[in-house]
Design a protein around this nucleic acid. Structure first.
Length: 318
DNA sequence: TACAAGTCAATAGG
DNA sequence: CCTATTGACTTGTA
């Protein structure tokens, strides 16, 4: 649980630029013990193939196809020993585009969201990037949503509009370190207009967008005014919750009639009960899918079999 | 109208 | 200050 590895977020931007703080081989689940030499440069396309590849089958069990050891290497675009003065980043043109994070990945591309989530979690921790910031600047989503998507990654091929959010995480991860940080405004790239760093726009319509004409220039996602009145969140009593859960475990989907009866019995609004079952069904499904993936991994992706080349001598000797 | 998927965003926990 | 949880919107379908 202890997160011994952690970098100082307060690092002087200058230092970051000159010395390029790099995340060493990232392998969250395996504690970075992968001693494989991750020094080689990595082409974007290769990195992309880490979590995304083409032509996936729609079969749920085919989702796991990522080689577990390929976490990470940062492409080195420039190094600190290159001269007395670090060179200027040369990504202006890329930053000019509103397409960095909105870049569309080929339709047939497949993203291993579980793997992607692990990487994002690692990056956020590594650079002490709060979820709130990342969720807002990169995804245009709320912190809670991000947390949920990261902890309970949805299966790629079962998603529809939800892919967009994961795509953004994915695209962000593809950027070199300084750009990843600059988009979050954690690292200032001189010579680049701030507007160029704010290419993000809400991927879809946001809820409660008030017709206000106020032009919030900074945060691209807060184009709506937060409702002045905070409505309290309803909370089930222990009894209500346990009763509902008990029923749900036996009857995941009850008829409208029964729902109404339950509502009356528990002194709840009919809609509240309906919402409970709807949420319970969806969340249970997500967890089952995650569990299924985990089983699949432990069952088929045992350490021994990774990409180890087959021992030919053994075969020929037989 | 009912359900599912994607989120929001309040708030419980640390 | 942060992240995790979660009841209820919002939107897209059928």
């Amino acid at each position: 649980m202890a997160q011994e590895m952690k970098k100082e977020p307060e690092t002087d931007p200058e230092i970051i630029r000159e010395e390029e703080v790099e995340p060493q081989g990232v392998k969250p689940s395996a504690e970075n013990d992968n001693s494989k030499n991750n020094d080689q440069f990595t082409l974007l396309d290769e990195s992309i193939s880490n979590v995304a590849h083409h032509r996936p089958s729609n079969n749920r069990n085919d989702e796991i196809t990522v080689e577990p050891e390929l976490y990470a290497e940062e492409p080195r675009y420039f190094t600190h020993r290159e001269g007395p003065k670090a060179r200027r980043p040369v990504f202006r043109e890329e930053l000019d585009e509103n397409t960095i994070l909105n870049a569309v990945i080929a339709d047939e591309a497949y993203i291993d969201t579980a793997d992607l989530a692990q990487r994002v979690l690692y990056e956020l921790k590594q650079y002490s990037i709060p979820q709130t910031l990342f969720a807002d600047k990169i995804l245009c989503r709320s912190q809670g949503t991000l947390s949920d998507l990261l902890r309970n990654p949805r299966p790629w091929n079962e998603m529809k509009s939800g892919k967009e959010t994961y795509r953004r995480m994915f695209n962000w991860l593809q950027q070199p370190l300084h750009i990843r940080l600059s988009i979050l405004n954690l690292y200032d790239i001189t010579g680049v207009s701030p507007s160029a760093l704010q290419p993000l726009l809400p991927p879809e319509q946001k809820r409660k967008i008030l017709p206000s004409s106020q032009g919030l220039s900074n945060t691209p996602c807060s184009s709506y005014t937060p409702s002045p009145s905070k409505k309290q969140r309803f909370l089930f009593t222990e009894r209500q919750k346990s009763t509902l859960n008990t029923i749900f475990n036996t009857y995941p989907r009850v008829s409208k009639d029964l729902q109404d009866k339950i509502a009356q019995k528990l002194g709840l609004d009919s809609n509240t009960v309906a919402n409970f079952f709807m949420n319970a069904r969806r969340r249970q499904k997500i967890q089952q899918q995650a569990r299924g993936r985990a089983e699949y991994e432990t069952e088929y992706l045992t350490e021994e079999y990774e990409d180890e080349p087959v021992d030919v001598t053994e075969i020929s000797n037989a």
